[in-house]
Write a protein that binds this DNA or RNA. Structure first.
Lengths: 239, 239
DNA sequence: CAATGCTGTTTTGTATACATTATGAGCAAA
DNA sequence: TTTGCTCATAATGTATACAAAACAGCATTG
């Protein structure tokens, strides 16, 4: 996160390409030609290549026979990525429960919980997403292992798998808003389990919590045509 | 795996640097200067930078304030990495159990099990490591999800976390050889669980199996001085 | 007619020169 | 003595020229 700002050109290329892929401007299987992209973006090949390498690591591109192509995702891939995030966040939660030192270490994340409550009552959906992301980051940090924390964050960067990947853009149906309430209860339960040192409970609650995201994807995918404008990321998913 | 061969210079740099770090020629905290390294390795800066970027992704280097430094690992980091691998392999095993189509899909990995048996009886330790690695790769492939498989392989690339990271180099004590027998039984149990569709059992067996690797690290670390020549990777671990 | 090899073209891989930013030493002033 | 500024130096970030390799199309040959 810190390096991103320093690399001006590389970051610009990274951001722009990621955007194009996620928005569906670049389709799965499209080949990326360096010189052409370089001209297009107004960025020379060296930082562009750095960005391409990064996007390969993020899983958005595949490198075959020398050239990069945009990766294609199936709906199953999306579900798997979400499940993977659940597993990793579950591990973070379990480790947090097993290793937690002073209860005061939970103060910050409890504050986020309260903020989420306030936002849910007032119905400000945008703030919810920001706070939700914050909660998940704080949870990852609680595990006490930088190795695990890194991997959780990595899983969160994966397309569609992020805790707030879809909510901002999905139409705010009552059904969806209700799922936020459920999710917030799960947040509370996870923290309670950690506080009580209930590692296994914390792990499975976090896994179950990730399935909420899966459900959101299912809803969005079912209404793919209608949500096409709201959720352009869906263009990435084939079929 | 496929791209590695194509990049001649980049791969050379990657391999050499990885080796230097793992062997302790480069110590934790050492700064890597591009021009100096470029001269040293006889490789120009562009492919070198690509290698550095890759090593950052692998977790061996950290990028701060523009420059790369060799990452320092604590013993706790090593344990966490191993636990993480256990979690991910456990997930692969569980998914394999839950999703397995035809039982014949287990034929290949069962063959590996038999090969491992034969090697254990004959006492050829080198072949054991190769087959052990093969087993773990096949297990990852069984999960039916490329996303998960990729992440398992990623966790295996992490220093010390690979299934056969240490065994080849550790002195072959009776105690250690006994652990191989235990490990092989765990292999069999995992496959049995998958075959029976016992997802949860498969998951936890795989987790427990990873703890064998942890024990090997503990042994090696306790005898750090004696094993220093045999296990140069230990130089990477501070303290 | 099929297969194979040649050649022009395009694309990525590599090297290096240039630009920009960080760093640290030295000195001056408080 | 310490602190802050300035400037020299050296590092990384960027651009581009060149090399090598892959690819496609065509012609030639069996």
């Amino acid at each position: 996160m810190s390096k991103t700002q320093s690399n001006s050109q590389t970051y610009k290329a990274l951001d722009e390409l990621r955007g194009r892929i996620m928005n569906g401007k670049l389709h799965g299987g499209d080949r990326l030609r360096e010189v052409q992209l370089s001209d297009d973006l107004g960025i020379s090949r060296t930082p562009l290549r750095e960005a391409l390498l990064q996007l390969e690591q993020e899983g958005l591109l595949v490198r075959g026979r020398g050239g990069y192509t945009v990766r294609t995702f199936t709906l199953a891939d999306v579900f798997d990525a979400i499940e993977l995030r659940g597993v990793l966040e579950g591990t973070a939660a379990r480790m947090a429960a097993e290793r937690l030192g002073e209860p005061s270490m939970l103060n910050d994340i409890k504050q986020t919980l309260s903020d989420l409550d306030a936002v849910l009552e007032s119905g400000q959906a945008n703030s919810y997403d920001i706070l939700n992301t914050k909660f998940h980051m704080q949870l990852a940090q609680l595990c006490g292992s930088f190795i695990v924390e890194e991997e959780v964050e990595r899983a969160n960067r994966f397309p569609f798998a992020a805790p707030s990947a879809f909510p901002t853009q999905i139409e705010r149906t009552d059904r969806f808003l209700a799922s936020l309430v459920v999710g917030q209860q799960q947040h509370r339960d996870i923290i309670e389990a950690i506080e009580n040192g209930e590692g296994s409970r914390a792990e499975y609650l976090a896994r179950e919590h990730a399935r909420l995201a899966r459900r959101n994807v299912e809803i969005a995918y079912a209404d793919k045509q209608r949500d096409a404008q709201n959720v352009p990321q869906l263009a990435l998913v084939e079929g």
